[in-house]
């Protein structure tokens, strides 16, 4: 495969890889690094490209694995500060400020979901893949995808309504 053909092929889903990486890793720079890394890996293994049923789905799976690894490495590398004896009943100032921009707020809620739900909602609601496709990409079965999707969406709704009713109820 020539470089030009490869670029045309990957350009169709490159942004999707980036968005999935960004959803999981949150940071823009890290997501860009991840995308670059995945595309390079694909390029190096271009001879095997014909064997893949669906290059896009394959690249998505690679991205997911790469990000999960990154997150795991971060978890072990970083010191976590956990407040176990500290609780604030009022919504924090930060939360109140964030609430100003409701779209950002949805993003914040979404990024607070568990990785799996985050990835599934990203793939379904933003990239509009079907459940079987998502199941294939993430290596799950379809029921798991549907359940996680429903849980994630309900969680977002719950948080969204909390914010919406803040000061009303």
């Amino acid at each position: 495969m020539k470089e030009g053909a490869f670029i045309t092929l990957t350009n169709t889903f490159k942004d999707k890889l980036f968005r999935l990486a960004k959803r999981l890793l949150v940071s823009n720079e890290e997501a860009e690094d991840a995308t670059q890394e995945i595309l390079l890996k694909l390029w190096r293994n271009k001879s095997k490209m014909g064997e893949y049923k669906n290059v896009e789905a394959f690249a998505m799976t690679m991205t997911k694995n790469y990000c999960y690894d990154k997150l795991k490495a971060k978890e072990t590398g970083n010191l976590k500060i956990v407040h176990s004896n500290y609780q604030d009943d009022k919504p924090s100032l930060q939360r109140q400020l964030e609430a100003k921009d409701s779209l950002d707020w949805v993003g914040k809620i979404m990024n607070s979901l568990p990785e799996q739900q985050r990835a599934i909602i990203q793939l379904r609601d933003i990239e509009q893949y079907t459940n079987p496709e998502i199941a294939d990409m993430l290596g799950l079965n379809e029921t798991t995808v549907r359940v996680a999707l429903s849980r994630g969406r309900k969680k977002i709704r719950e948080e969204l309504l909390k914010k919406h009713n803040y000061g009303v109820v």
């Binding site: 490869f6 942004d15 968005r19 960004k22 595309l39 390079l40 949805v106 977002i156 709704r157 969204l160």
Partner: peptide, 22 residues
Amino acid sequence: YKPLFEYFSQESTVAPTRNITL
């Protein structure tokens, strides 16, 4: 529910700013 769906359609257009090269 408006922000939820607006967010989804907004996010579907996000693209990397850096040019990815081989």
